[in-house]
Design a protein around this nucleic acid. Structure first.
Lengths: 188, 188
DNA sequence: TCGATTCGGTTGATGTGTCATCCACCCTGC
DNA sequence: GCAGGGTGGATGACACATCAACCGAATCGA
């Protein structure tokens, strides 16, 4: 599972300044490799994928481990059909189960199972360790701050104005500040 | 076509400093959205995908528009089965064709067709424009430089030592400096 | 209260990436 | 010249993402 952008030649870079071109090529290669590496690592030393992990994280973030399907899609910025398919596969493996919603006959909940909880608890530590050694151990405090600012600027551009044309985003909450309450870390 | 990492909760971030946590979350969301946006844009205003684009770029970068299959995989950092499948699909759509290699009975070339050349020439300008407006118009010169340095550091970490365990990379060329000769931009 | 919309969610088709396996050909040692 | 292993590449099975179409429940306007 992968989606990579790739090395760019004159076709693209003619419209970028040389310095921008080098930055873009470096970024593109880095994020491709990093995604690939994290995915591979995750599926090697645990039985779940990055996508499973993302779903499980959201479920464990709620008090009772149950979230409505489309709420899940909104939290993850996924399309509803994607979440539906994915939950179906996870259900087949016992990581989650679906329950009907009493108050709304159309709706259903995705509920974390014990198997799912165990899976994420086993996967999380090594994933965090990998992120730290691959990324943050390489960067100075200044660079970490720069990474955040750059990411926020681009993300803001992506989610404002005519760019924000994707389905699941129309009613999304405050884009940058969705830190869980119990994470013990400040919200700002 | 997508591969996204997603919002992280305490599970992951417990092992990261608060400042690192914020940077990581911001980065993860940004690159997910950016990938999605670029892919969507590419497939909307041209008939090719980002992956097609990457292949076509490599082909147009050579003098005669023909590259050996595994050489292509090495240039793109793709697995050989991925390039094989992808070339097969592109061949079906007429973007490339395969030719036998005379000097090595096992090998084959991937050759750019006129259709393929037209496709990339139509796709490139708007893609470059999008990258510029979404990314570089948001960043100062200092930030562009920071982005490049951060990306290079992480990429270097990813491709050295025990991380570089992937098939297609074992004999890869100098990781960061594969700028095409005719791009008109300095190699360093 | 009844029809039209909207909303929550599923389904199936299609394109894509990965893994394991396989085959044909090359090369080297003998 | 031929047996062994290595290499270039293809294939099939599976997981995954997207799109369009669909369905039934909710809701809203008349």
């Amino acid at each position: 599972m992968m989606c990579q952008l790739f090395p760019y030649a004159e076709h693209v870079t003619r419209w970028l300044e040389p310095e921008q071109q080098r930055a873009w090529r470096a970024y593109v290669r880095m994020q491709g490799e990093l995604n690939a590496h994290l995915s591979r690592q995750m599926s090697v030393d645990s039985e779940i994928s990055m996508a499973d992990f993302a779903v499980l994280v959201q479920l464990t973030d709620t008090v009772d481990g149950r979230v409505r399907v489309l709420e899940l899609a909104r939290l993850l910025h996924w399309e509803k059909s994607r979440i539906s398919h994915h939950v179906a596969r996870m259900e087949k493996r016992g990581l989650v189960r679906r329950e009907n919603c009493g108050s709304d006959g159309r709706g259903s909940f995705v509920v974390l199972t014990d198997v799912g909880r165990t899976a994420i608890e086993e996967a999380a530590p090594s994933h965090a360790e990998i992120v730290r050694t691959l990324v943050f151990d390489q960067l100075s405090d200044t660079e970490v701050e720069a990474l955040r600012e750059i990411s926020e600027k681009v993300f803001t551009r992506l989610t404002t104005g005519e760019c924000a044309s994707v389905i699941a985003r129309c009613d999304a909450d405050d884009p940058m500040e969705v830190v869980s309450e119990e994470s013990g870390c400040p919200e700002a």
